[in-house]
């Protein structure tokens, strides 16, 4: 167990390195001299040279890379557009995105597990068909369109929830649903498959043969086994949610990292793009690693040694 944890944590190093290098290089994939882009149109030669020095673009690549890394954490790295420290700008937005992602995870896991278990227990009944139809449609619906529909129903027609912004508890309901519903569809499908698999196992037959009531067999004996893979998928949903957050934040005007990045794309603020993507990717990697470790804790078969 301990060696597994250490191995998994060590694996983070090359991934973090690779991810940060890739993000750093984004600037260098851009056709044209970066400094010229930063300086904007109509800049003089001196302007460009000045920027090269300020941004350290005249230094060797590895020095620039190290400066880039240091710049993120010290807050020295500034937005080209606003001139503000990116660290300062991104921190509250990061909180916003995480808030949104967590609310969605809660929706997607409770709804998804509930539907999946019901579908498996009442396999081939109308409950199953309905749940799986929901799951398939949910997995095929673009997040942003779902957002538009929810606004249409709850904000435009029913007028019970705000269509955007970030004020109070009410304002997070629609964004969280927008992001959580499609993801709950995936969780439901997997829970159903996993639950059906668990229910067909020999140990379920054993429990039934020993007079354990069916309800207890389903919710204790089968569910605990079935949830192990589901936990992994819920963790992996986090990546989906970070992706979806970009769109949800745009639909609802939710101040998060995703919208920050998209705005930066339009203002050609490449440094913000780099840092924003890097931070999102790091979060994604950390969550995935935690999920792997959690899996090991949940499944006693992996808990050896």
């Amino acid at each position: 167990m301990r060696s597994f944890i250490i191995k998994r944590l060590l694996l983070l190093i090359p991934i973090f390195f690779g991810v940060s290098v890739l993000c750093f290089l984004i600037l260098y994939f851009i056709p044209g001299v970066p400094a010229k882009i930063i300086a904007g149109e109509g800049a003089t030669k001196e302007d460009i040279e000045n920027i090269r020095v300020v941004f350290g673009l005249d230094k060797p690549l590895y020095v620039q890379y190290l400066r880039f890394l240091r710049g993120i954490f010290t807050g020295e790295l500034r937005s080209i557009k606003s001139g503000e420290s990116i660290l300062k700008e991104i921190a509250p937005r990061y909180v916003g995105t995480i808030q949104l992602a967590f609310s969605s995870i809660i929706i997607s896991s409770t709804l998804g597990i509930l539907l999946g278990v019901l579908a498996a227990v009442y396999k081939n009944s109308w409950i199953d068909n309905l749940a799986m139809a929901f799951a398939l449609i949910g997995a095929s619906t673009p997040v942003f369109w779902l957002g538009l529909l929810l606004i249409l129903v709850f904000a435009v027609y029913l007028k019970v929830l705000p269509s955007g912004g970030r004020e109070g508890f009410k304002s997070i309901i629609l964004p969280a649903l927008t992001l959580g519903l499609p993801s709950s569809a995936i969780v439901a499908r997997l829970t159903r498959a996993s639950m059906l698999d668990a229910l067909s196992q020999d140990y379920i037959r054993t429990a039934l043969a020993y007079g354990i009531p069916k309800r207890k067999v389903i919710f204790k004996y089968a569910l605990k086994n079935a949830l192990i893979p589901v936990v992994t998928v819920i963790g992996l949903q986090f990546g989906f949610l970070l992706s979806g957050a970009v769109l949800t934040e745009s639909v609802f005007g939710w101040p998060g990292v995703g919208r920050y990045i998209v705005d930066a794309v339009f203002s050609r603020d490449y440094v913000v793009i780099e840092v924003g993507i890097l931070i999102t990717a790091m979060t994604f990697v950390l969550v995935n690693t935690s999920v792997d470790l959690l899996y090991a804790v949940l499944d006693p078969r992996l808990r050896k040694g």
Binding site: G18, V246, G258
Partner: peptide
């Protein structure tokens, strides 16, 4: 490394 990025972000 590529899989460490959420899909739409890489596309963006």
């Amino acid at each position: 490394i590529f899989m460490a990025f959420p899909e739409i972000l890489l596309a963006i």
